[in-house]
Design a protein around this nucleic acid. Structure first.
Lengths: 259, 259
DNA sequence: CGCTGTGAACGCGTTCACAGCA
DNA sequence: TGCTGTGAACGCGTTCACAGCG
């Protein structure tokens, strides 16, 4: 019950993000109710999976009824930590960093860019989105003055580790790494095990180039793709209710594909 | 040997990309040999894992010796399909699409952008990186004239499904989706079961916003992070001081409360 | 009854121990 | 001797069947 202090599959967290996204979409369409089956279909997983994933964090539904969209959405936002504001700095304000800073949708979710940092003199001092680009060396003092929760790494891969170190040394505990490199969660030189500040740090990767290569592989080897069609809930005589609203896809069914 | 038509964990494919990246880095440093232990450390997995992953695809090492960097690199490129050229079109040439088109590193790996497409009249006709932006409606005829292997989706999320459909209808079998949406691998309206062209399509996602949210979650709940410290290969002779294994459980994980 | 919530079974991916070969 | 390659064990995440409650 509740969040047992451990063992939540990382895949479950990713799926939670997906469910949240679906709920937002449903809310925009003024759909007020949903079910594990409906969510499953939209998320391309099984209904079992949906219920299990939600069960890791609480009990959000009503038996016999399903889930209330705004309520479940609010709960998932809370679980994911999206009911607070996250102050973010971006390291690296090249093309990628600027694209990130300008990407719509981020601010929707309580992510606030509070600082932009770079080492390139051509960039430092510029104004982007109303934020002055500062020198990376000033991150430490900046972070002492302004609370910074997360750092986005958008520097060239050869500088990623050093930039990450700068973030961590400034006390930042969450790093979103866009560089095509593995960030070593430790101070690299020697194993300086000085009460490692890295032990508290979470790193997530957003890896465009890796995505390209995975795609190349699976496009070349379609037979090795994970079969994405999961079996539906096997209910005899299933009627599918709800969907009070118009214009939805009332179709049914077991989309079955096989090979 | 070689790619037997079997079950290869998707995670293994991702790790292969990582190994390849490490090998490239080693080659740049003129390191000619490596080992499963070395790769494991750099990739942050176990040596067992490295050997098993490689074993899915062949035998690339020499017992007692390890792996030859250029050789293993070449083999992994072959396995991943990176020893050929992939012709790529980009759908959506807004800020994100342009950032992708200009991102360095892509062309290194035999990915060639051959077409840019959009529906925005302000963008269509522009020249980007020497490529004229065409209207999305022209993709079909374009693809008939020029072989296109992959399509990168960089359109706003509400247009992602339709744009994906355009790609697939043009005969493209691989889609890299940058939009924060799930692409339904089927023609959405009704179940038009016309020998579903989608069945042959691979979709990979690169999801910036999802990464942000996962990061928020794990930064909020550090104790739920997947423990990234894997046991090393038990080396003879090497004494490994048992890490204090600092009590990593406590603190706020309970997202309960409140309601 | 309908759909959620959940302990238990299952199967897959990771881990392991060791066989095999330079 | 050293490190790879691999069948087998293990454990975790997914799947399942059904209990629980509207």
């Amino acid at each position: 019950m509740s969040v047992s202090s451990q063992d939540i599959p990382t895949a479950a967290v990713s799926r939670l993000v997906t469910y949240l996204r679906i709920l937002e979409s449903l809310e925009l369409q003024d759909v007020s109710r949903t079910s594990s089956n409906d969510l499953a279909e939209r998320a391309q997983v099984t209904a079992f999976q949906v219920r299990k994933d939600l069960a890791y964090f609480g009990r959000f539904g009503t038996r016999g009824m399903g889930y209330t969209v705004p309520l479940l959405k609010r709960e998932l936002m809370r679980v994911l930590g999206l009911n607070r504001t996250w102050n973010v700095v971006i390291m690296g304000v090249g093309r990628l960093g600027q694209a990130i800073a300008n990407y719509p949708g981020a601010s929707d979710y309580q992510f606030a860019y509070v600082g932009l940092f770079d080492v390139n003199p051509d960039v430092v001092g510029q104004d982007i989105r109303g934020l002055r680009v500062r020198h990376a060396d000033d991150l430490g003092s900046f972070a002492r003055a302004t609370p910074v929760d997360l750092g986005f790494l958008a520097v060239p891969p050869e500088h990623a580790q050093a930039a990450a170190q700068t973030l961590v040394s400034a006390g930042i505990r969450g790093v979103l790494n866009f560089a095509p490199t593995i960030i070593q969660p430790r101070t690299v030189p020697g194993s300086s095990d000085v009460a490692d500040e890295w032990k508290q740090v979470s790193v997530e990767n957003v890896d465009f180039l890796a995505g390209m290569k995975r795609l190349a592989f699976y496009t070349l080897n379609p037979s090795l793709r994970p079969s994405e069609l999961k079996p539906s809930e096997p209910k005899p005589g299933e009627l599918r209710p709800s969907d009070p609203q118009a214009g939805n896809s009332p179709d049914l069914a077991n989309t079955d594909v096989e090979e």
